Amino acid sequence: MKKKLCMLFAIVLLLVGGCNEKSQNYFTGIILKITDNYFIVSPDDSESIRETGDMVLVPKEVVSSNGIPELAAGERIQVVYNEMELTDEGVIIDIVYAIYKENDLEGTQEK
């Protein structure tokens, strides 16, 4: 009886844990401009976020403890985020989990 109860408890924990996963989206693009608060990024044509807008405002504040790498206009980056919002200013990312230089990712990830 104890064994069945423990097994049932384990299954319930797995089901509940699976429902609480946060969605992480990402896209690759080129930095067009850097302002005090944002990176203005042009997503690659193949990215689904491009359907929403051709310029995305990516906040400089990230969740990653690694912070933001040294970036300049014209660099290719990958942005990992949770959600975006369409505003009068354009497409704005809500929470940025991490920003990576694309050349730092080569050979480490598949899309």
Score class of each variant (00 low, 15 high):
Ile99Pro: 05
Gln78Trp: 07
Tyr81Val: 06
Ala10Asp: 07
Thr35Asp: 08
Phe9Arg: 11
Glu110His: 12
Glu70Pro: 11
Asp88Leu: 07
Ile11Ala: 10
Met55Asp: 03
Ile92Tyr: 07
Ala98Thr: 11
Phe9Tyr: 11
Asn82Gly: 06
Ile49Glu: 03
Met84Glu: 09
Glu83Ala: 09
Thr52Asp: 13
Gly107Leu: 05
Gln78Asp: 03
Val91His: 13
Val96Trp: 01
Ser48Glu: 02
Val12Arg: 13
Glu102Ser: 11
Thr35Leu: 04
Ile30Gly: 02
Val91Leu: 15
Gln109Trp: 04
Lys4Ser: 13
Gly90Val: 07
Glu106Val: 07
Gln78Glu: 09
Phe9Met: 14
Arg50Gly: 01
Gln24Ala: 08
Leu71Glu: 08
Tyr100Asp: 06
Met84Cys: 13
Ile40His: 00
Ile77Phe: 04
Lys33Ser: 06
Ser46Leu: 02
Gly18Thr: 12
Gln24Tyr: 15
Val79Cys: 03
Ile30Cys: 00
Val12Leu: 15
Asn66Val: 08
Ser42Val: 04
Ser48Asp: 14
Ser64Val: 09
Val58Ser: 05
Ser64Lys: 06
Thr28Gln: 13
Val12Lys: 14
Leu71Ala: 10
Thr87Asn: 10
Ile30Pro: 00
Asn37Val: 03
Asp45Gln: 09
Phe9Asn: 15
Ala73Asn: 04
Asp54Met: 07
Gln24Val: 14
Glu75Asn: 07
Pro59Asp: 13
Gly67Thr: 10
Asn82Asp: 11
Tyr26Leu: 02
Leu32Trp: 04
Leu14Met: 09
Thr35Ala: 05
Tyr26Glu: 02
Gly53Tyr: 04
Asp44Gly: 06
Asp104Ile: 06
Lys22Arg: 15
Gly29Asp: 01
Asn82Phe: 11
Lys2Ile: 14
Val58Arg: 00
Ile49His: 01
Glu70Trp: 11
Leu105Lys: 02
Glu102Ile: 06
Leu105Ser: 01
Asp36Pro: 05
Cys6Val: 08
Glu85Thr: 08
Lys111Cys: 00
Gly29Tyr: 04
Glu21His: 15
Cys6Lys: 10
Lys101Ala: 05
Ile11Asn: 13
Glu83Gln: 14
Met7Arg: 10
Asp36Trp: 10
Lys60Ile: 05
Asp88Gln: 12
Cys19Gly: 02
Ile95Phe: 10
Leu8Gln: 14
Gly29Gln: 03
Asp104Pro: 08
Tyr100Asn: 02
Ser42Leu: 02
Tyr81Cys: 00
Met84Phe: 12
Gly90Asn: 10
Glu85Lys: 10
Ile11Ser: 15
Ala73Trp: 06
Val63Thr: 12
Tyr100Pro: 07
Thr108Pro: 07
Gly67Phe: 05
Glu61Gln: 14
Ile68Cys: 04
Asn103Trp: 07
Gly90Ile: 05
Thr52Ala: 09
Val91Phe: 09
Asn20Thr: 14
Met7Tyr: 14
Val56Met: 01
Ser65Asp: 09
Leu32Gln: 12
Glu83Asn: 11
Glu89Val: 15
Val62Asn: 07
Met1Val: 13
Lys22Ala: 08
Cys6Gln: 14
Asp44Arg: 04
